[in-house]
């Protein structure tokens, strides 16, 4: 780990100021991924600005009176607190489930909501500095493209990068149409949709998202949800816990009798960002909530997948996981 200057920030604005003043500085929040990558020499900041201790970790209802209008997750809330917050468990159970599907109890006690979105890929070629990786070292090539790519993307990849985003939480957030709140040195608040926030690798896989240096995530906004009664987070992995997803699916249904009046499906483990299964959603809207319709929609979604040598199974597994998540959302709820 490269030596670095450590600063304990006193306020969020002062942290942002400090951050903006040094292009080689990084914010330290949960640290569960940053420190891991610093030990591997993948991340090499020369300054860390510690905001861990700042009191910015609330889960707030945005409702005024009877009108449901969503929830704000402060960026420094711990994943475990968010997952267990009564508002989240009752109104966004799919989010609780997704968070609890990720990592371990210890890591969820450390990792923050904002940091969760900023997790970097778990691609082993990215992690091993002896390997080529365009995300880590632009221009060095993609080791995974012709390599061991079992865990890699089947949607939205480029020949520069086929990595996947590792978060479970972000998959549920994508399904819930969450927005990312970011603040910069000038004090400007931006509200980014997940589409605006996350990127596909394209020609610049070194950028995971569209934040600029000096931007700090201050919160995540959840719009009012109509999916609390019928939602589910399904995760398929190589062992039963404490493993990254082969494929995961966050699904929510809003029903009018048997008819699907609204639906959300997002996938993890398949792309450089949480993947909204828009094809499937479109097919299902207005249809009857049946297993056959779920399967057809899943098949249509995965038809566009482009797998690699070792992850062809993700097409069938993706179909199954979408159908399973929808069926469980229908039958059990979260």
């Amino acid at each position: 780990m490269r030596p670095f200057k450590y600063t304990r920030a006193t306020t969020l604005p002062s942290a942002i100021k400090e951050l903006s003043g040094n292009a080689q500085s990084r914010i330290l929040a949960g640290g569960t991924n940053l420190l891991d990558l610093m030990k591997e020499d993948v991340e090499r900041p020369e300054a860390l600005i510690d905001i861990t201790h700042l009191p910015h970790s609330a889960v707030k209802s945005l409702s005024q009176g009877a009108a449901k209008s969503g929830v704000l997750l402060d960026a420094l809330g711990k994943n475990s607190e968010t997952a267990n917050h009564l508002l989240i468990r009752s109104q966004y159970p799919m989010l609780s489930q997704a968070i609890l599907a990720g990592a371990s109890a210890q890591i969820r006690n450390m990792a923050t909501n904002g940091g969760n979105l900023l997790q970097r890929t778990r691609c082993p070629y990215f992690y091993d500095v002896a390997m080529p990786c365009n995300k880590r070292t632009p221009g060095s090539g993609c080791g995974a493209l012709e390599g061991f790519n079992r865990m890699h993307a089947v949607f939205g990849w480029s020949d520069k990068c086929i990595a996947v985003h590792p978060s479970d939480m972000a998959v549920a957030l994508a399904a819930l149409d969450a927005k990312v709140l970011a603040q910069n040195e000038a004090g400007q608040q931006r509200r980014l949709t997940f589409d605006e926030f996350f990127r596909l690798p394209g020609d610049a896989p070194e950028k995971d998202n569209n934040l600029q240096h000096g931007d700090l995530i201050t919160g995540i906004e959840l719009p009012a949800s109509n999916f609390a009664d019928h939602s589910y987070y399904a995760k398929v992995r190589d062992r039963s816990s404490y493993a990254f997803a082969l494929v995961s699916v966050a699904a929510g249904l809003q029903l009018n009798g048997k008819q699907i009046s609204d639906v959300r499906v997002a996938m993890g483990g398949v792309a450089h960002k949480p993947w909204r299964a828009l094809t499937a959603e479109k097919m299902l809207k207005g249809k009857e909530a049946t297993e056959a319709n779920f399967k057809a929609a899943a098949k249509a979604e995965m038809a566009a997948a482009k797998p690699h040598e070792y992850n062809k199974f993700k097409i069938e597994l993706g179909e199954r996981a979408i159908a399973l998540a929808l069926t469980n959302a229908l039958n059990y709820g979260s």
């Binding site: 091993d128 002896a130 061991f148």
Partner: peptide
């Protein structure tokens, strides 16, 4: 990875020892 002869699964996140569950 035969191109380099190195282990790709070189961490406990990639090499799955059984967990309690």
């Amino acid at each position: 990875d035969p191109r380099w002869g190195n282990f790709i699964t070189r961490s406990f996140a990639d090499y799955h020892v059984p967990v309690n569950l």
